[in-house]
């Protein structure tokens, strides 16, 4: 498929993502705040619904095309040390301005001009890593990022099946009305 057509598809899918994210009100900065406050039910239910549908969809996709299926997302950098550090920095950043990536994009679409400022202030942070820190660290991604089934040395279907059942069970537990 030629790249321009791919971009058009991507943009249209993006409109769909933005539409549903805004309608549902998905933001993990908000979600983390809820969890820290001990009230994480809403974000947990949102996350579990996304997790169940995506895990099944991504796993089953390998029966459609061999090059699909579960993929190790992101790189395990420095035996995972940098993943934790960058997760901490990212977590701190989103709690500071109240918008994860989806939250920032959503609020830009909702007319909150503060998040155009946030969006632009990504640039110095990214440039600092890409042009300053990365060359220094030079520590490549020598550790091959793997999936949970590989780590546990358990065939994918069993791991996928059990995590999805666990997630479904947790979602149902969270959704049943409180009996007085």
């Amino acid at each position: 498929m030629d790249f321009k057509l791919l971009l058009l598809y991507g943009f249209l899918f993006g409109i769909g993502f933005g539409f549903f994210v805004q309608k549902a009100g998905i933001c993990f900065a908000h979600g983390l705040g809820e969890i820290y406050m001990g009230k994480g039910k809403r974000i947990l239910r949102i996350f579990l619904v996304i997790f169940i549908i995506s895990t099944l969809g991504f796993y089953l996709s390998k029966f459609i095309a061999p090059e699909l299926g579960l993929k190790p997302i992101g790189q395990l950098r420095g035996y995972g040390f940098y993943n934790i550090i960058s997760g901490m920095i990212f977590g701190a950043g989103i709690l500071l301005n109240g918008g994860c990536i989806l939250g920032t994009l959503r609020q830009m679409g909702e007319g909150n001009l503060l998040f155009f400022v946030v969006f632009l202030s990504f640039i110095p942070g990214m440039a600092l890593i890409v042009y300053v820190i990365d060359p220094i660290l030079k520590q490549g991604y020598q550790v091959q990022n793997i999936l949970l089934p590989e780590l546990l040395a358990v065939p994918q279907p069993y791991v996928v099946g059990s995590v999805v059942i666990l997630a479904l069970f947790w979602l149902v537990m969270l959704s049943r009305p409180k009996k007085k």
Partner: peptide
Amino acid sequence: AILGGFLIGIGVTL
């Protein structure tokens, strides 16, 4: 907001 965005920029790239 700018500090938050700066940290996010670092976090997503590191």
